[in-house]
C-alpha cells in the first residue's frame, strides 16, 4: 500500500490526519468560546454532544485520527533518524529561514499528547464517560458542563449544582490557577506545532508554488493563532475570575 510504503504516502497520511485534527480543534475552540458569553449556551452544547450516537461516533473517529497521527509520527521520526545515520556533525548550526518548530515536531507533539491525557482525565472522564456508564465520576451533572469548567479553573461553584449522592470535597485552592497555567503551557506547545504543521501539511499535499509558499506560511501562523487564541481566551477569562475572587 503506497500510503504506508512510500515516503510521500506516509507524509500524506500525516498531513490528512493533522489537518483533520486542526478542523476538530477549530470546532472545539469555538464551542469553548461560548463559555465567555453564555453558560447556558455551553450547557446546551454539552447536552447536544453528550453520549448520543453521533457524539460517540465523532469521539471514535477522533481517537482514530490521533492514533494514526501519533503512530505515523513515531514511525517517520524513527526512519528519519536512521536516514540521518549514526555519525552526527561536530558543528551544528541553524540555517536562516528554518523555524525551530519544524525540527521539533515530535517533541512538541508528545507534549501535546501528554497534556491530552490530563485533559481527558479532567473532562472526558467526568463528562462523556459519566454519561455513558452512569457512574458518578464527577461532582457535577455532565449536562451542566459550564459549572464544572468554572469550578476546575476558578474553584467557584454553586453547592446546589453538586450531584446528589456524590461525596464532594473541594480541591486545594492553589490547584485551580495551576491548572490554568498548565493549560496555557499546553497551548504554547500546540501553537508551535501548528505554526509549522499547517503549512507543512499543505506543502505535502502539493498546494504550494512560488506565490503560495509564503502565503501558506502566513495561513499557518494565522490558523495556529486563531485556534490557540480561542482556547487561551477562555482560560485567561477564568484565571481573571480566580484572581478577582481570591485577591480582592
Amino acid at each position: 500500500m503506497w500510503l504506508t510504503d512510500s515516503s510521500i504516502g506516509r507524509k500524506f497520511v500525516m498531513s490528512i490526519s493533522g489537518l483533520f485534527l486542526v478542523l476538530f480543534l477549530l470546532f472545539h475552540a469555538s464551542m469553548n468560546l461560548t463559555l465567555i458569553f453564555s453558560e447556558d449556551a455551553y450547557n446546551w452544547i454539552c447536552e447536544m454532544l453528550g453520549a448520543n450516537w453521533y457524539a460517540l461516533i465523532g469521539t471514535g473517529v477522533l481517537a482514530l485520527g490521533v492514533l494514526v497521527h501519533f503512530a505515523f509520527a513515531i514511525v517517520l521520526t524513527y526512519q528519519n533518524r536512521k536516514a540521518r545515520g549514526n555519525d552526527r556533525y561536530a558543528v551544528e548550526t541553524r540555517q536562516e529561514g528554518v523555524d525551530w518548530a519544524s525540527k521539533n515536531m515530535l517533541a512538541l507533539g508528545i507534549i501535546v499528547l501528554g497534556f491530552l491525557v490530563l485533559h481527558l482525565a479532567n473532562f472526558w472522564f467526568k463528562m462523556q464517560f459519566q454519561e455513558l456508564t452512569g457512574l458518578k465520576t464527577g461532582a457535577f451533572d455532565p449536562q451542566n458542563g459550564a459549572a464544572y469548567v468554572k469550578y476546575l479553573f476558578t474553584g467557584l461553584y454553586d453547592p446546589a449544582g453538586i450531584q446528589e449522592g456524590y461525596e464532594f470535597s473541594p480541591m486545594a485552592n492553589w490547584l485551580h490557577p495551576v491548572y490554568c497555567i498548565l493549560y496555557l503551557v499546553w497551548l504554547c506547545a500546540l501553537w508551535f506545532h501548528l505554526s509549522h504543521g499547517v503549512w507543512s501539511a499543505l506543502q505535502t499535499m502539493g498546494m504550494s508554488n512560488t506565490l503560495w509558499l509564503n502565503r501558506i506560511k502566513v495561513i499557518s501562523i494565522v490558523v495556529a493563532t486563531i485556534i490557540v487564541g480561542m482556547f487561551a481566551a477562555v482560560i485567561v477569562y477564568y484565571l481573571g475570575m480566580f484572581v478577582g475572587a481570591n485577591c480582592f
Binding site: R10, K11, N80, Q95, W199
Partner: peptide
C-alpha cells in the same frame, strides 16, 4: 534509505 521530508527547509 533517504528519510521522509518534513519541510524544514534546511
Amino acid at each position: 534509505g533517504f528519510g521522509n521530508c518534513t519541510n524544514t527547509g534546511a
